[in-house]
């Protein structure tokens, strides 16, 4: 198990406390003190599960900018895929051609890979089944695709996650 580090505790504490203030939305001394104590306790217990890496990763403007840019990239992809999926559903659910395809991932690090996998799952039409690694350390996703347009791994990967992967690489590298 990982050791509890001070920056991780601090970051978790700030997040919890901000949440507390936002949710209670009262600024009496009593509420603020209770919130601080509860947040500190929660941070002490959960920081080592919550933050595995550098706690202040997003405090650099370039990374924060990349994250905000990614939200818009993702929204664009989301709307495209949603319209496509809605068309299939209203069209009687007939023109589908499902399959599970293995595509290579060009990202390093747990956070980046998990973020990309979740983004793929959130996009209608593709769901990540599993992540696997081969002997050389190359990671692969197994993706269930509702309409398999290409069985070539690289081409399919570009079609499923090309834009998303480029956006995420800018955040985590």
């Amino acid at each position: 198990m990982q050791k509890t580090k001070f920056p991780a505790v601090l970051a978790t504490f700030v997040l919890c406390y901000a949440f507390w203030i936002l949710l209670t939305w009262s600024f009496s001394a009593q509420e603020l003190a209770a919130g601080a104590i509860v947040s500190l306790a929660a941070a002490l217990f959960s920081a080592r599960f919550f933050i595995h890496d550098k706690a202040f990763w997003f405090l650099r403007p370039a990374r924060l900018g990349a994250l905000i840019a990614y939200v818009f990239i993702f929204l664009g992809e989301l709307i495209k895929a949603n319209v496509d999926m809605a068309k299939r559903c209203f069209g009687g659910c007939k023109n589908i051609d499902p399959g599970v395809i293995r595509v290579p991932v060009g990202l390093k690090g747990d956070y980046a890979q998990a973020m990309l996998a979740n983004s793929i799952t959130l996009t209608p039409g593709t769901i990540t089944l599993d992540i696997a690694e081969d002997q050389e350390g190359q990671a692969y996703y197994y993706i269930h695709w509702i309409d398999v347009q290409s069985t070539d791994p690289d081409q399919a990967g570009e079609m499923i996650k090309g834009n998303l992967e480029r956006g995420i690489r800018r955040i985590w590298e």
Binding site: L78, I79, N82, M85, A86, R88, C89, F90, G92, C93, I96, P98, T121, L122, T123, P124, G125, T126, I127, H144, I146
Partner: peptide, 29 residues
């Protein structure tokens, strides 16, 4: 409208995995 599309998909898609795919429509947009 997108929630309706997802619901139709969940009811009419031919197999389990495709039904799951349709349900993401509801939970995203």
């Amino acid at each position: 409208i997108f929630a309706l599309a997802g619901t139709i998909g969940v009811n009419k898609m031919p197999d389990t995995f495709s039904r799951m795919q349709a349900s993401t429509c509801t939970s995203t947009l």
